[in-house]
Design a protein around this nucleic acid. Structure first.
Lengths: 338, 338
DNA sequence: ATGAAAGCGCTAACAC
DNA sequence: GTGTTAGCGCTTTCAT
């Protein structure tokens, strides 16, 4: 481990001032070509890299804080990666924090990002997903949002933060109308929880459309679950044991869908022969299972880009709409039939 | 957005010097209880958080750089998350960089982490996976490794870096011996590429054990693929079209396994009835498919912890073995039969 | 125990 | 254009 070289070393050897070295580094000011060459030559010679920390201390950090519920979940991974790409393209670095769906970690990371002086914080998942906002967390966020723009993929009532989220009402609409167009009248929805805003919106829309199109409405066609494979399995099992088996099932996400599929296969039934399935999220899972899942795609590149652009606009004090909706689209594959 | 409060503000209001505020912040020196209380009260009152960047500039950063091939891949996600946990538990923060399997990004991120003055760099995936090291990259790493410890999950010849990796030879051994104990004699291996060190080791061991146990050896039982679902599908398809269909197939990872399964099902065959399958990686995919996959688990918590501990030992100038092997284990589920 | 002051490595305002 | 000089916000000697 060697001691590190600084702009002073370069300046001394080049016979110029540190400021000049800084100028060629930033490229923001004119430098006589001759001197510039000498300095650049030295930089190359020593493989000199300016200390990012020092730069940040006397300027902006150009770092965006990104808090995700759990990066191991493909939904979050896909979105996080798009945010990272979008940020990088715009000259920003992303500092990623995993919350593991743990509220204590969520609070700790928020403080950490603030202490790190990131220029904006983007949160996807955890308490910003709740239907009814936790006032304690809203209070905490409100405080940091006074000095740093805060953008989330859900909502946080009372904190005055910005939201960029999927239009879940529309998502449900395209799914239902697709199934209806296929002739389905007995449609169930499984796997999510009402306390989650996105699921709540979908459920509301499901009920509304059931009425609108005069479909058969049954309480037991709405089955809450844990968003995991196990939840989908349990829900579908119960559905298959019910008095009237639906002809189509909407799974709240891909995990729930594969659990549901397993329950169907266990019963010796086939998909889409005996039962049609649609899911939300369109992670790689949709492509990987057999049959491939028809799924609602959340348009991750656009979603991530919008999240980041909103953050950057806010950093530049531009005025931004408090709520922006991303339109999802249906990807038709092989899991649905009449 | 408000201007930010500093230790000077706290010091002034508390009637002490900035140094004293710093002392209560770090907790490394004695402060008269009375003064400490006043300062702590003020810190709470203003929700003051010391600027991490300034702290880093005059001290250590306590940041570990983590470069992953692609965090969307569950294998990397699982490992990255364990590294993050291990680091956090030891008072370190992780700066995550995604390389998207792109060599230009790999180089850029390496430089970025160096410029960021992380205390050590851990790389999982990309060129450290190559069987034959890219001398250009080795050179670059060697340079940064002069001032920062570099640890990887593969190898990098000539760069003098540290390796913590899976014992792939042993991994292959437990898989083969398990299949042999079940009575299989016609075993194929699909999905990986020889130019990848881990796959190369497995293939060597496969050939060795095939000879040792007198199994039927056929060139066409070794089929290279792209580590993705599509590769597994193609390989299995070819195997099913071959003159002698194997009774068991070893897939290089879970993705390849599900592709292979799809090919088997397409053919109207069953697993494990007609064909047994084992995979490596044991990501959540193994649990999610039907039948559940018997898979080699890479012991992610231990793997991640060892990676981080090695980094921290190196930071503290402790002497560490250049190569450490993590023993994998076989998780038996439902995808194998006689 | 505590304050004054130097310094971490860079950028930027200000002269020249 | 370029050098000089202040900071950026904190930690850490060094006195006292």
């Amino acid at each position: 481990m060697e001691s590190e070289i600084t702009i002073y070393d370069i300046a001394r050897e080049a016979g110029v001032s540190p400021a000049t070295v800084s100028r060629v580094l930033t490229g923001k000011a004119k430098v006589t070509p001759g001197k510039r060459d000498v300095v650049e030559e030295l930089i190359r010679k020593y493989h000199f890299k300016p200390n990012t920390i020092a730069r940040q201390l006397s300027g902006s950090t150009r770092i965006l804080g990104l808090m995700t519920a759990d990066i191991r979940n493909p939904y979050y991974a896909a979105l996080a990666v798009e945010c990272e790409k979008a940020a990088n393209q715009r000259g920003y670095t992303v500092l990623l924090c995993n919350m593991f769906n743990d509220q204590a970690l969520e609070e700790a990371h928020l403080e950490k990002l603030y202490a790190q002086r990131v220029e904006a914080i983007i949160q996807i998942g955890c308490r910003v997903d709740d239907l009814v906002t936790d006032p304690k967390y809203a209070e905490q966020v409100k405080r940091v949002a006074k000095s740093i723009p805060f953008i989330c993929s859900g909502k946080l009532d009372g904190a005055g933060v910005y939201s960029v989220r999927i239009d879940h009402v529309f998502a449900m609409k395209i799914v239902m109308e697709y199934l209806i167009s296929l002739g389905h009248r007995d449609i169930a929805i499984i796997g999510g929880a009402r306390r989650v805003q996105s699921t709540h919106e979908k459920l509301q829309q499901y009920i509304y459309l059931t009425g609108l199109y005069g479909l058969s409405f049954r309480e037991e066609y709405i089955r809450e679950g844990n968003y995991a494979e196990s939840g989908g399995y349990v829900c579908m099992k119960a559905l298959l044991d019910g008095e009237k088996i639906p002809s189509a099932v909407i799974a709240i996400n891909d995990y729930s869908a594969i659990g549901a599929m397993r329950a169907v296969f266990d019963r010796g039934l086939s998909i889409p022969g005996d039962l049609s399935i649609v899911s939300f999220d369109n992670t790689f899972i949709s492509e990987a299972v057999n049959p491939k899942l028809t799924s609602v795609d959340y348009n991750y590149p656009e979603f991530g880009t919008k999240l980041v652009e909103t953050a950057l606009d806010l950093i530049q004090k531009k005025s931004v709409s408090q709520l922006q909706l991303i339109p999802p689209r249906l990807l038709i594959r092989d899991s649905c039939a009449v």
